[in-house]
Amino acid sequence: MATRISLTLDCKDAKLLGGFWKTALGYVDEPPPAPFKTREEWHASFNLPAEDSVDDVAWLCDPDGIGPRLSILKVPEPKTAKNRLHIDVRVPGHGSPEERWARIRAKSELLVKAGGITLEEFNGHHIMMADPEGNEFCVAAARPEG
């Protein structure tokens, strides 16, 4: 059996990036672990310093339970270099190369409206973008197997 992974993204503004990545991935806020009813209640159970706010973290998950969990954590240091690992946002659906490219372009345009930036287009293949804090990712078509 394969090991499941979750991804963690450091940031300046967890709420901003949480909203962006929910739009990008179709993810939702992850519910708190049992027996807690809210994330605030769960967070308070750790008895953290007052300056550690529940607003400094966004916990996202795939509503279908297929994709990895995404934690977005506020950190004090700024982003200083290109990501060594990035996310590929795979746009579902198949069809002709023109149809796939149209779906890729439509998704990238939606993400620009959500605060993303287009960095470079590789016509017909993928679009390299950055989220509102400069984390690079690509928008591409889903591979034939999914």
Rank of each mutant, 00 (worst) to 15 (best):
A102H: 04
E99G: 08
S96G: 10
N83M: 04
A81Y: 01
I72G: 01
R103S: 13
P92L: 09
A81T: 11
E99T: 14
I66Y: 14
S108A: 15
A106S: 11
R84A: 09
K107Q: 12
V89Q: 09
A114T: 08
L111V: 06
K82N: 08
V112L: 08
G95T: 12
G95F: 07
E98W: 01
N83F: 03
P68E: 10
P92S: 11
L85F: 13
V112F: 11
R103F: 01
K79G: 00
A102C: 06
A81E: 12
R90L: 15
W59C: 14
K79T: 00
H86P: 02
E99I: 12
R103D: 03
S96I: 13
K107S: 04
R84M: 06
I72E: 00
D88S: 08
G65Q: 13
K107V: 05
P97K: 01
P68K: 02
V112W: 12
A106I: 05
I66C: 15
V75D: 13
L60C: 09
L73P: 04
R100D: 07
S108G: 06
A58M: 10
R105I: 15
C61S: 15
E109F: 04
H94E: 10
E77V: 03
H94T: 15
W101I: 12
V112Y: 10
